[in-house]
């Protein structure tokens, strides 16, 4: 029998002190499902990156996790500025921040590539001025 469950957590933009809360709550659930440890590790990192992206860039957003016995898919949706050039954003080290800004320690540009590294599939859709949606899929086998 096909069985699936869904978890949703709202995330507020700008509150860095709480960044990681939703990821930790989801992780707690995953640990109770007897998943492979490597998978938990990968998802934990991807979830956290996605959550921090929302906190750092968007006004508000949510993390939705859908789990079935074949895969886990995470949807990270936000209302925010959106991404103009997704290919560019996927390049490791890419950041919209200027060289001068980056010298101050802003915008290291590691978020999305790190999510991709920890996912089997990553789909991104975004509309400038509206928001971004990431779909992060991890297969269990």
């Amino acid at each position: 029998m096909f069985f699936n469950m869904q978890l949703t957590y709202e995330i507020a933009g700008g509150d860095f002190g709480k960044a990681g809360y939703a990821s930790s709550e989801i992780k707690k659930v995953l640990k109770k499902l007897n998943l492979d440890l490597r998978i938990i590790k990968k998802i934990a990192v991807a979830l956290y990156e996605a959550e921090v992206n929302i906190v750092a860039h968007a006004y508000r957003g949510s993390l939705t996790v859908e789990i079935d016995t074949v895969k886990i898919s995470v949807k990270a949706q936000d209302e925010g500025p959106g991404i103009a050039d997704i290919d560019q954003a996927m390049t490791e080290g890419f950041s919209t921040a200027s060289a001068q800004v980056r010298e101050m320690g802003f915008g290291a540009g590691m978020g999305l590539p790190n999510i991709k590294k920890n996912a089997d599939e990553l789909n991104i859709s975004s509309e400038v001025g509206k928001g971004t949606e990431l779909e992060i899929i991890t297969y269990l086998k």
Partner: peptide, 23 residues
């Protein structure tokens, strides 16, 4: 070795069902 004692069931499908019941 791991001693993952937090799992609700050895079988993931069963664990998911139990998790739904918990929720």
């Amino acid at each position: 070795p791991a001693r993952s004692m937090l799992k609700l069931d050895e079988d993931m499908g069963e664990a998911m069902k139990k998790m739904e019941r918990v929720r």
